[in-house]
Design a protein around this nucleic acid. Structure first.
Lengths: 221, 221, 221, 221
DNA sequence: CATGAATGAGAGTTCATTCAT
DNA sequence: AATGAATGAACTCTCATTCAT
């Protein structure tokens, strides 16, 4: 029944809000039930355990992210534009889940501790997809002579790491700066770092401009 | 008494090992006591609560790190060499605590959730020091014309974020690659990105070489 | 639901019995649960803490007492008869709770120590009602010339104190004498002490008789 | 060694203060030690257990009281004067221990609960002495025709009970009235109640005066 | 499907008491 | 005699999960 799926989503939504506010361990199943306006037992009609509910949330979000990503990249063939789309997708996703951001840190921590290997597995699968997409894209850029010759897996991994690092920065600083500009800044540094001579010439002025702007201060008019 | 401090360190050491293996929440105080070879009550002679013990660990480690950092940088005046030292210090520290690495993720997660604001405060203080050191160093490099003109706080923040991102990558990938080479790779990308024309010329060959090597594959003989 | 209130009463009843036998501090919540035939957690479904349960008992009993008192006095208008009713109400109440008697001492002790001011407050409210009722009644007796002129608040307070004193005597002597006769004896002494000349004449023979009888020995057939 | 006894007294004194402030159960042995300026272990050099220390306090105080009582009564032969001395002794004793008053309630409660029968035994021995002294005195008063014929044990028990009741009143009311005047008031009521016709005539004016004064309000000029 | 009362294993913490120094 | 670190039994309270209604 569609009704069942609707209610499941309602519970996931409620859980996300309470987890985000209180953290996984400080959240009681009763809190989630109350926040969703149902009885405690009802939660167990939809999720076998509290951890299962937590996992469902991770899975739900990563699925959404993955779907968006694949869809967006499919609509564009220019690899430089695709690189932008990749960045935009991350920003959009995180912005939508800004209020839930701290939960991601808990997913990571949980993945490394839980006996339930699914968390780690799911996160690695997600990273695998990112690496795969990034690899295709980067390979293309190298092949076309836009990027310098570079060890592609390493560069892609680094890029993913940087994304996570920026996200961490953003969360720990209480989301004090616009995530989007931080990503642009990152792209500028990376760009100047790995663009080939030819490509560099074309973009240098714009990228240097971004470097000077940074992402922490208000942009001048 | 010196004896008291020795025992405190023993307990911290035991706690670190058990926390690293089981995670903060899955660790019972009794586990730590048993692992340290003392009775449960003894733990409470040295730390008022389990959370206090957890905090003491964070504080201990960050203090060590900070001391090392300041000491190392004080012994060197060339900013380019100092940049290397900064990187090395991080690598050395993390390598020494490789087995405890997952705990850092929990510190971060905990800092965002706990009512005990000390966690967040301590982490921010640590980041503050890193930013301060990085800022001095980068400002010098820009002043000397080694770096392009750039918004220094943003660049330094990005660098810190990248470090965390690499660390995260390393932890989530089960420490499958040498952390040191990842940092070198990062420096190469950043270097090519922000070095001024003059400086670039000098270092370009070497940095490009690093780009091609990457950090994920075994180095050829 | 009525069921909830029933179970609450069941738990209060069980708690009263265990507290009476073992004392508040020597009683574990588990004891109460076992005695009531429920699980430990169930106790906490009805009372937030052990102390809350203790307070609920005090409140329950004083409420019962107060209700009875007011009801009884309302059914009688002659102040001399009302004085008897007051005495009877106390006797009936204590007799019904004879097995719980030691708990009252703990209520008093607890009221003076606990950070939870409700105990002291509740006991004072109860005493306030007794004083109020006693004051009305005594004022009437003085006004009618049955009692000598006397400082009414002092006399009423003394009477209340004597009641508690007799109760204490009874409890510490292991309830070796009939509480009722002790109250009658008290009334006789007080009566001879504060009755006006006129009233005294009328009742003197009877009261003197009571004085000779006392309350500690078996009455002669 | 006298030194040992001195230190024992020091500890008893410290214990009394802490017990009075916090109550027996909320007081930790460490609190007493700290308050006495010694180490925790030292307390155990003088008292085998915490309960033993508590008992020692009760014993100490009752011994003092008993000694004073016997001594005072021995210095006076007129039974009416002796009755006054008895009352004064109680007042003096309680006034000296005003700050410790709440502990007495705990002694009583403890006596009824503890497995250590010594508490109840000791309190009963004390009461026994009071009854004995009171009985001799009252018997004399009856024999001399000063008191009406009365069941002596009952009257003496009642008097003791009243004393406790007044004490309770005083403690629960936060010692708001002068204990001494309450005892005088009590004596006046009792006196008018049990004095023989002849004795009554002589004292009636004075006693009635006391009745009108009460003990709760400030005495006029 | 939904409920929420009932469960009980389990965790953190306390503190009287011991004992090596 | 004095100390205070160490002990570990004991206790309160929590909360994920179950299940009768």
């Amino acid at each position: 029944m569609a009704h069942r799926e609707t209610k499941r989503q309602l519970l996931l939504q409620a859980a996300a809000e309470v987890f985000a506010r209180q953290g996984y361990h400080a959240t009681r199943v009763a809190d989630i039930a109350r926040h969703a306006g149902v009885a405690k037992g009802t939660v167990y009609e939809y999720f076998r355990t509290k951890e299962e509910l937590f996992y469902a949330l991770l899975d739900e979000w990563l699925n959404q992210f993955e779907e968006e990503l694949v869809e967006r990249l499919g609509q564009e063939s220019d690899p430089l534009r695709q690189a932008d789309l990749l960045r935009e997708a991350a920003v959009l996703f995180y912005r939508r889940h800004a209020v839930h951001a701290p939960i991601f840190l808990e997913f990571w921590a949980h993945a490394l501790r839980s006996r339930d290997g699914r968390f780690l597995e799911r996160i690695r699968r997600f990273r695998g997809l990112l690496l795969e997409l990034g690899t295709q894209l980067t390979a293309e850029l190298v092949a076309r002579g836009i990027f310098l010759p570079v060890d592609i897996p390493s560069l892609v991994s680094l890029e993913a790491g940087i994304s996570d690092g920026i996200f961490l920065l953003w969360v720990l600083s209480d989301q004090q700066f616009p995530l989007e500009r931080a990503y642009v800044f990152r792209q500028s540094v990376l760009g100047l770092g790995v663009l080939s001579e030819a490509a560099r010439k074309e973009l240098e002025q714009k990228l240097r401009q971004k470097l000077q702007e940074g992402f922490l201060t208000e942009r001048a008019g």
